[in-house]
Simulated scan of single mutants.
Amino acid sequence: MSSPLVPIEIRLKRLPHGEGLPTPAYATEHAAGMDVVSAEDVTIAPGGRYAVATGFAMAIPEGYEVQVRPRSGLALKHGISLPNTPGTIDADYRGELKVILINLGDTPFIIARGDRIAQLVAAPVQMARFAEVRELDDTARGSGGFGSTGIASS
């Protein structure tokens, strides 16, 4: 049996053009991502990109980030994705959250104010530091680059 998850608190500041819109929310009890909606009407041409306003800014607790991810239904049905997926919102950013969408489809995509456009996933951040060394340890893969492990399963 798993223990209940304790949510972190993310403070949200609604901006004037975000009045009346729902706050990001989980669609189901076990959803990992919170749906976020558009605060504007916009049409994205095929091959086009646009930073869609959400109408809010937020304060993420130190030690966390919020990842912005595509919605699978929009990707499958319309070719709508995020060119920098997952996008990262850092804990020290206080500006409006805008979702960069790209239309990989072949027809213009119309977004109406209030449409769900992406999902937000809160995630812990593991800080790192680099240690410069003369040599790295050996592995089975070694320095094999993209595609070096093949396609077929073993």
Score class of each variant (00 low, 15 high):
86 P>S: 02
50 Y>T: 03
142 G>N: 07
36 V>Q: 13
51 A>T: 01
29 E>L: 10
21 L>W: 05
29 E>P: 00
31 A>C: 14
97 L>H: 07
17 H>L: 08
3 S>T: 13
101 L>N: 04
135 E>V: 01
116 R>E: 04
39 A>H: 00
13 K>N: 11
39 A>F: 07
114 G>E: 07
69 R>A: 05
15 L>N: 04
87 G>F: 04
45 A>F: 01
117 I>W: 12
99 V>K: 11
25 A>S: 12
80 I>P: 01
34 M>I: 00
10 I>F: 05
26 Y>M: 09
15 L>W: 06
51 A>E: 13
2 S>I: 12
138 D>L: 13
73 G>C: 02
67 Q>R: 15
73 G>Y: 09
151 I>L: 15
14 R>D: 07
99 V>R: 14
74 L>S: 08
10 I>V: 15
60 I>P: 08
25 A>P: 00
135 E>W: 05
58 M>Q: 08
131 A>V: 10
7 P>R: 07
89 I>S: 10
97 L>E: 06
154 S>Q: 13
39 A>S: 06
123 A>S: 15
111 I>L: 15
136 L>T: 08
53 A>T: 06
47 G>F: 05
73 G>M: 10
29 E>M: 11
68 V>Q: 03
76 L>C: 02
94 R>H: 12
27 A>W: 04
60 I>V: 15
12 L>I: 15
147 G>D: 14
149 T>K: 14
24 P>F: 04
61 P>C: 11
112 A>E: 14
118 A>K: 12
13 K>H: 09
115 D>R: 02
76 L>Q: 09
123 A>M: 13
74 L>Q: 08
53 A>H: 15
80 I>H: 02
64 Y>K: 11
154 S>V: 12
44 I>D: 10
141 R>E: 10
84 N>I: 03
12 L>F: 11
123 A>W: 12
48 G>A: 14
20 G>H: 01
38 S>N: 05
124 P>V: 08
138 D>P: 06
93 Y>S: 07
105 G>Y: 02
115 D>F: 06
103 N>I: 07
10 I>D: 03
113 R>P: 02
90 D>Y: 12
44 I>G: 07
107 T>W: 01
104 L>R: 13
66 V>T: 11
55 G>I: 03
37 V>M: 09
34 M>P: 05
15 L>D: 03
73 G>R: 02
16 P>A: 07
77 K>T: 00
142 G>W: 11
139 T>R: 12
34 M>L: 14
68 V>P: 02
98 K>V: 14
81 S>C: 00
111 I>F: 10
48 G>I: 06
33 G>H: 08
91 A>R: 01
102 I>L: 06
48 G>M: 03
123 A>L: 11
101 L>S: 10
40 E>P: 10
64 Y>G: 10
82 L>W: 11
14 R>H: 00
55 G>H: 04
68 V>F: 05
118 A>S: 14
53 A>G: 13
153 S>Q: 02
15 L>E: 05
110 I>R: 14
45 A>H: 04
122 A>L: 08
14 R>L: 04
96 E>T: 03
80 I>C: 02
152 A>V: 07
27 A>E: 14
54 T>I: 03
26 Y>I: 02
122 A>R: 13
48 G>R: 08
81 S>Y: 01
86 P>K: 06
109 F>K: 02
7 P>K: 07
48 G>W: 01
15 L>Q: 03
139 T>K: 12
76 L>N: 06
20 G>R: 08
47 G>T: 00
